[in-house]
């Protein structure tokens, strides 16, 4: 717990530097988005004032092992699209999936 508090205080301090080097901040954001673009990570767009709890849009590029995993979890997807034209390559295809709970 103390470790987390220390980390959070450090993170805020780093972001709150008066003459912060914007390149550093941009690089952190870029790393986050690179992670999002390359894995089973979650993102969504929400319109102001609209509370949504139940919908995730997942975008990513999956590894060849994915289908063996997908067979186990496929039932939870309400929608699964393969881009661009429904053609599934052996590896590295892009997808969008939605899960509602």
């Amino acid at each position: 717990m103390e470790h987390i508090k220390e980390f959070e205080a450090g993170l805020l301090k780093k972001l709150d530097v008066k003459d912060i080097d914007k390149t550093v901040v941009r690089n952190i954001s870029k790393e986050i988005v690179n992670l999002k673009k390359n894995g089973l990570l979650i993102d969504q767009v929400f319109v102001k004032g609209i509370p949504r709890l139940d919908r995730y849009i997942i975008n990513g590029i999956v590894d060849p092992e994915f289908w063996s995993k997908f067979n186990n979890v496929g039932g939870i997807f309400s929608r699964f699209e393969v881009f661009p034209y429904g053609v599934i390559a052996h590896q590295g295809f892009k997808f969008t999936a939605e899960i509602e709970r």
């Binding site: 999002k36 993102d43 881009f83």
Partner: peptide, 24 residues
């Protein structure tokens, strides 16, 4: 959830905001 998107992400996945770009 933050109502924010990184430009690179939007460029890779415009269908998130553009219904006309969704394949289905």
């Amino acid at each position: 959830q933050a109502d924010l998107l990184h430009r690179d992400y939007l460029e890779s996945f415009p269908q998130i905001v553009n219904g006309f770009a969704r394949s289905c």
